[in-house]
Design a binder for these strands. Structure first.
Length: 116
DNA sequence: AGTTTGACTGGAG
DNA sequence: CCTCCAGCCAAAC
């Protein structure tokens, strides 16, 4: 028995999108988080792909610090070279392979930040 | 209604 | 560290 429906209701989809954007807006300068972490905190642990979809296609998402979202390997978004620059300008450190050093710069949402 | 496509992830080699 | 590969799931074909 799965703990989530096969398909999101429109309301759930709206809530998911709002939660994703809300979490992204709280990522501190100079830190990053991952698609999977955001999805889990939004209540849909297996929807990491949808987090990426949301950030790419939601109008206005570019006004949020979505450049602070990378994948679990610390890899920046394909086709978005400027993301690397933006992170460097904030002091985010990269490994020799060009990925973010998550050991030092990974940020996770916490309860306090969710209580508004 | 079946197939392909990703701003993803975890495991295998 | 890397590259496949399977699983994932909403959207687009």
């Amino acid at each position: 028995m799965r703990d989530y429906p096969d398909q999101m209701t429109p309301e759930q989809a709206r809530t998911f999108r709002d939660d994703v954007l809300n979490i992204v807006s709280q990522i501190p300068r100079g830190r990053v988080t991952t698609y999977g972490i955001i999805a889990a905190w939004a209540g849909w642990p297996s929807h990491s792909r949808m987090v990426g979809r949301t950030l790419r296609y939601t109008p206005g998402a570019d006004q949020l610090p979505c450049h602070r979202v990378v994948n679990i390997a610390g890899r920046t978004a394909p086709g978005w070279g400027r993301q690397h620059e933006l992170l460097q300008e904030e002091g985010v450190g990269f490994k020799p392979n060009g990925n973010v050093d998550l050991r030092h710069y990974l940020w996770k949402p916490n309860v306090d930040s969710m209580l508004g």
